[in-house]
Amino acid sequence: MKIAVCLKQVPSRDSYLRLNSTSTWVQETDIGFEVNEPDVYALEEALRLKETAEGTGHEVIVCTLGPARAQQAIKEALAKGADRALHLEDAAFEGLDSFGTARALAAALSKETPDLVVTGLQSDDLGCGQTGVILAELLGLAHSTIIMEIKLEGQKLKVKRELEAGWFQWIELPLPALLTIQSGINKPRYATLKGIMGAKSKPMRKLSLADLGLAASDLNPKQRILSMNLPIRKAKTEFLEGNPKEIAARLADKLKNEARVL
């Protein structure tokens, strides 16, 4: 079984984010990056499927589109147990929308003909929640989204799809297929020291626009961010200040006398 995992590298949660000079994205120079949260779960799911599948010859391929820094995300995935990686890197890939990203990923993955592709359900930065589903269509795969459990039953998958407000639904679909994975589906592993050492010798293939057989115009965005701003606060929040003890006393007083909940 050949499983491909789409991993995106995004600004880390703890980074203090500021807008760039044109207010069209965040300033990326002095922040940290990490693997997009649901993608971490997607990778873990792929590794588990590989490890529990019968027979041999199973493989997990990581596929990441991003600048040079994204190699860190790839290395992490290889250290955790992925077998090899495709790194889509080209100046033409900068600032792609979900469609462009999916188009490039599809060009890379169509040559691999994976049995299963897993992606995160949504990226923490753009938050479009589209790339995986578009990729499924471009690769001609059946898909299901926001998955919380995967059962492999021969040439079929049985997956638990999360719905709103604590509801779920089992879906059956044929392989090959694409699933978008929800955070919480499993307990992701940490890389071991042995894994980290081993990752160094695993194949990482770089793919440019030309390698993918695409022209820049194939990736033309169907949407563009004009500008970004901090949310406008409808500001009714009363901020309490002082040292912790003072704040605690003031809040307790407000809870008693204003909110009347004590």
Partner: peptide, 9 residues
């Protein structure tokens, strides 16, 4: 975008 930390046009 960015989990509600910013809004984008």
């Amino acid at each position: 975008v960015f989990q509600g930390k910013f809004e984008a046009d």
